[in-house]
């Protein structure tokens, strides 16, 4: 642990020592079953998302607006050579406040055919399954939330990416039928 008030040289030395020590440490025992989660921010609200619900996290490079786009559709973008519609996750979750232009794109797993724009990707963490608190079904429907995680800075919602993608599909079908 690097002390907060240490000098820069001391910090560098400590980091180098820990980096070197990491190779010398024996393999850690089998950790308890945990789930890798992505920490990100959308519309000023912090969320978790299961990495297994995603197929990729990419920076948002170019977004081409689409005339007459539905609510939450920012435009079209290119992800790994494939053209995908990019939706603003904060708008889809109906979060209060104006959502800034997304910097990152969450690509749902399973060939959802859409990207979710988020504000900021903080990183990834492993969270025990037992740490996830279940939320009510009404909250799960309204916000696409599957649970809550208690952190030191407060609670953070666990985003149900599959339900968000399902809601997108459900909202597309009437238009396709109409088309």
């Amino acid at each position: 642990m690097i002390p907060a008030g240490a000098s820069l040289d001391g910090r560098v030395a400590e980091m180098r020592r820990e980096f070197d020590a990491s190779f010398a440490r024996p393999p850690a025992p089998e950790p308890p079953p945990s789930e890798p989660l992505l920490r990100f921010t959308a519309g000023g609200t912090r969320f978790f998302a299961r990495l297994r619900d995603l197929s990729g996290v990419l920076p948002c490079a170019v977004v081409v607006p689409v005339p007459g786009a539905r609510r939450g559709l920012l435009g079209l973008t290119v992800v790994r050579g494939q053209i995908l519609p990019l939706y603003a996750l904060a708008t889809l979750l109906e979060l209060p406040g104006s959502a800034p232009a997304p910097r990152w794109i969450l690509v749902p797993a399973g060939g959802a055919g859409a990207g979710l724009g988020v504000d900021f990707v903080e990183g990834a963490s492993r969270i025990l399954e037992s740490a996830v608190l279940e939320v009510s079904s009404a909250a799960r429907r309204d916000g696409g939330k599957r649970g809550l995680l208690q952190e030191a800075a407060g609670s953070r919602a666990l985003l149900d990416v599959a339900s968000v993608v399902a809601s997108l599909r459900n909202s597309k079908q009437p238009s396709q039928q109409e088309g």
Partner: peptide, 14 residues
């Protein structure tokens, strides 16, 4: 690198 690692983790999980 972090994003790459996240994507690598996603690919590894896949």
């Amino acid at each position: 690198t972090n994003i790459l690692a996240i994507n690598a983790t996603i690919e590894a999980a896949g």
